[in-house]
Amino acid sequence: MLIETKYDQQVEVKKEDIIQFDNGIPGFEDETEFVLVPFEETVFSLLQSVHTKNLAFMTAEPFYFFPDYHFDLPDSAIKQLDITIPEDVNVLVIITATDPFVKSTVNLQGPIIINTKNNRAKQVVLNDSSYTTRHPLIGKER
C-alpha cells in the first residue's frame, strides 16, 4: 500500500510494517495504525498515520539522548501488548521540534512502547515525576 506522509513523501508500506495502537494515541484515539518512516542518516523517525496524511510525530529512541533514562513498564501495558521478553520492546519518545532546533523538547513522561514481535503499541504515561512532557532535548540532563 502507498501512503503519503506529512512531508509530501510517498512511502510504500507493507501490512506487516503497520504498528497497531489498540486505543490510538492520547488525543488521537481514532488513529490506530501508524508506520515508522526513518529520516535518512539521522536518529529520528516519523511515526506517520496510515490514514491521515497530516498526522505524524517526530520520534527517536530516548537512550541516544538520555542514556540513564529508565522506567518500569506497568504490568497492564505488558499484558495489553503481549510482551514476553524485554528484547522484543522498542521504546520511542515524541519530539516537539522547534526553530532553532536546540530548543526542541521531548516527552519523557509518555514513551511509546512497541512490541516488535507483533507490532502492537501503546503510549504509556509514567507516574515518575522526574520526567516531563517538555524535557529539553539538547542541553540539560534531568
Rank of each mutant, 00 (worst) to 15 (best):
N127C: 00
G139P: 05
A56Q: 05
K6A: 07
T98S: 14
G110V: 04
T52N: 06
L47H: 01
T98I: 01
S76V: 10
P26F: 06
L73T: 04
V50M: 10
R120S: 09
I85Y: 08
L126V: 06
T42H: 08
P62W: 11
S76E: 13
S130V: 14
L73A: 09
E141M: 15
V11G: 05
Q9R: 08
I25N: 06
M58A: 06
L55N: 03
G24C: 12
N107T: 12
V43R: 01
V50G: 02
V125L: 12
F44K: 02
V124E: 07
P86I: 13
L108S: 05
G24K: 09
E141N: 14
M1Y: 04
V102P: 01
T42E: 05
V102Y: 15
S130H: 13
I112R: 01
F101R: 04
E33H: 13
V124S: 08
A60S: 12
Y64F: 15
Y69P: 04
E61W: 04
F71T: 09
D8L: 05
E40V: 05
D17M: 11
E29G: 03
F28L: 14
F71N: 10
K53I: 01
A60V: 12
K6C: 10
N23E: 15
L55E: 00
V35L: 13
M1S: 09
L92A: 03
N127K: 08
H135Q: 13
N54G: 00
S104W: 13
K14C: 11
Q123W: 12
E4P: 02
T132G: 10
V11H: 03
Q10E: 11
I78D: 00
D72E: 15
L55C: 03
N54S: 05
E29Q: 10
V13D: 02
T132R: 07
G110T: 10
E33A: 13
A60R: 07
K103E: 15
V13R: 02
T59V: 15
V102D: 15
A77G: 05
D88F: 03
F34E: 02
V43E: 03
Q109R: 07
V106F: 14
E141C: 11
Q20K: 14
F44E: 02
L108Y: 07
F71R: 02
F66R: 07
S104L: 14
L126E: 03
D99Q: 07
G139V: 15
D82P: 00
K79H: 09
V37F: 08
R134I: 07
F101N: 04
N107H: 09
L36T: 04
P67M: 14
V50Y: 02
I85F: 08
D128M: 06
V35A: 12
V13I: 10
K140Y: 15
F101P: 02
Y7R: 07
F63N: 00
Y7L: 12
L137S: 05
V125A: 01
L126W: 07
Q48G: 06
L137I: 13
Q20P: 00
P111C: 09
Y69I: 12
R134K: 11
I94Y: 06
G139K: 15
S76K: 09
